[in-house]
Nucleic acid binder design. Sequence first.
DNA 1: CGTGTAGTTGATAGAAATCAAATCTCGTGG
DNA 2: CCACGAGATTTGATTTCTATCAACTACACG
Lengths: 241, 241
Amino acid sequence: MSTAIIRKLEALHPLPEEDKTLLHAVIGRGRSLKAGEDIVSEGDHTDTVHVIIEGHGYRYKTLPDGKRQIIGYLVPGDFCDLYGFLLDKMDHGMAARTPCQVAELNEDHILMLTSRPALARALWWSELVNAAILREWLVNMGRRTPSARVAHILCELLVRLQVVGQATDDSFRLELSQAELGDTVGLTTVSVNRALQRLRGAGLIVSAGRGITIPDVAALKAFAEFDPAYLHFRQDREERP
Amino acid sequence: MSTAIIRKLEALHPLPEEDKTLLHAVIGRGRSLKAGEDIVSEGDHTDTVHVIIEGHGYRYKTLPDGKRQIIGYLVPGDFCDLYGFLLDKMDHGMAARTPCQVAELNEDHILMLTSRPALARALWWSELVNAAILREWLVNMGRRTPSARVAHILCELLVRLQVVGQATDDSFRLELSQAELGDTVGLTTVSVNRALQRLRGAGLIVSAGRGITIPDVAALKAFAEFDPAYLHFRQDREERP
DNA sequence: CGTGTAGTTGATAGAAATCAAATCTCGTGG
DNA sequence: CCACGAGATTTGATTTCTATCAACTACACG
């Protein structure tokens, strides 16, 4: 089902019915990936565009000494490498964190999609958002405390999962390990663990086993200085005139 | 003179003569900005595209407590906000670090440029590079030591300035204050100062007054784990088959 | 020749990394 | 059903690093 993709794109720009039909037709069922598998590996060339239908993944870079930095999360509806076929080699890898369904579109499919004005605009927006997320992460790493960093990531995932219907108003299922969180915010697992404890202690999050609940979303957002404007979703654009 | 712009775009994708002529015609002389002035402010809407003709700038975000995070440098040839007119509000600011000449293109100009296949491709590449730089900076902040972080930024600036003819093989003029470097790599000025001292002590850079020289570029790149591949310049693409 | 900005230095407190080990979770096979 | 093992989380002790604070110096500019 390509509903997540449509939900995400429509959160960025409204789509006429024909465009949604076209999307359904083009996306299909997708390929299944096991947890841990690479969607596209660092240094690979790809001439297809990968789209997450189901499951969660991340973008990463590996350093010479084996350390890893996660540079983005992939959730249902996300286009992994809209630009990819232009590049000779991917400058970062993408991996499935959970089992995933991933569609692979070829250049013709993409041309078909981008020849529709509304779709082209939605896709273009999605790339702008990707860049905006990177900028926000940079601020997060450079200038926030460990617990605020973790909180900020949680807020972002909450909003992004809400858009595709995978989170309620105040909770979502989190399969992120603390090691992955650490590789995301530039901390060790020990520090992430202690940051989570501080958040729990402050009553900002409720449990971090197999699903996390945020008792007071506004409080967590305030603590993390989270402003969803950078995600450029329509609902947030309209809120602020 | 729009030579820097042409040099940068050609480093990404070759351009036919007509395209260069068009660029010259469209760019013009540009607007003068004083050091410290905003090119585009955070939260502003703009319906023109800003291009750096001369001078250096940076992208930044300001936090509620007044702290600042620099999220990118702007050097001659860079398009600041190719996408800008799509956005209702800019999610980050751009400022001139030195006196700048900045061209302002309107939507018609951009359409004119993007209707030329080679130019469209070069501009598209330049956006891919912008995103790639952000990813690399994330790795830098998350996983490298303070002196490696600083060294990495220096390497990036060296290469980017070389492309537009503002750096020799091993030196360039650096007007970056240590405070700015700190806001870039997430350190205090004191730590930046000490990181620079370590780099000087190791013989990796030579002086950091009004121009810095890198006695052994390869050594600095190795120390910073700098691989120019992420900048996707043609010369580097061809080096690695 | 003062004044302001940027750079440098030293001392100290606080925070995160590191190291090592204990505990917990959960799927698997006996 | 229970024991077992791999991987994840948690904890405590210790070391190392960075932020912070507070001078002090160097230098450009009016």
